[in-house]
């Protein structure tokens, strides 16, 4: 019979006590989420891999300061966010890859399963345009949209990553959504397209 999966809390306690296997398990468990978040912030795989590596080192180094009972992901995302900005300051220019190169292969999203090819194409096109517009937003707006739309964090968790109250999360998120929508509307207006 397989051993029951340990909770993050237990792993964190064991890792703090010097258990190497617990440290490895924490890394294995959360590395993909950290990588995806880094990818959404940096826009390219190479930088995302670098940021993830550095963030995981920092995460393990700071486990002693981690508060018991708190979820691991917001803490880790906070580190990823800081590391991404450090990298952004060094590089100055954001090198974004196209969405098609970054998508999970062989795993269509649930909304693609309907039978209308035109609607499917339209949604795929919208996904590409959203990704591209996301890269043109200011960092603060991009990060909050990524945390909510792509990482599915609650307002409380987003507040914990960004260090702001929940009310601020809602207003900042709304400003970011409007800015994204305005960016998406620009080419539509120029080309006379109707969504």
């Amino acid at each position: 019979m397989a051993e029951p999966r340990l909770l993050d809390d237990d792993l964190v306690s064991q890792a703090r006590g010097g258990d190497a296997e617990a440290r490895n398990e924490l890394v294995r468990r959360h590395r993909a989420a950290a990588y995806r978040f880094a990818l959404q912030l940096t826009g390219n795989r190479e930088d995302a891999a670098d940021v993830t590596q550095e963030a995981m080192i920092r995460f393990l180094d700071t486990l002693q300061r981690f508060e018991d009972g708190r979820p691991v992901l917001p803490w880790l995302f906070r580190i990823v966010r800081n590391k991404s900005y450090d990298l952004g300051r060094r590089q100055k220019v954001r090198r974004a890859e196209s969405l098609d190169e970054l998508l999970e292969k062989g795993m269509p999203a649930p909304v693609q399963r309907d039978g209308d090819p035109a609607a499917r194409l339209e949604r795929r096109d919208l996904r590409r345009r959203v990704w591209s517009a996301l890269g043109r937003l200011p960092d603060k707006q991009r990060e909050i949209l990524v945390l909510r739309e792509y990482q599915d964090l609650s307002y409380g968790e987003i507040g914990s990553v960004l260090g702001v109250p929940t009310g601020t999360v809602m207003s900042r998120l709304h400003r970011a959504r409007r800015a994204l929508r305005d960016l998406l509307a620009e080419p539509d207006r120029r080309e006379g397209r109707v969504r």
Partner: peptide, 29 residues
Amino acid sequence: ELRAIRQAARSTRLAAPADEEWREAPRSG
């Protein structure tokens, strides 16, 4: 409009390296 954009973003699945592609411990700066 905001709902359509939200759904488009939420249905985007980005690939991450498989476990075996992260063989070594993270390399430091």
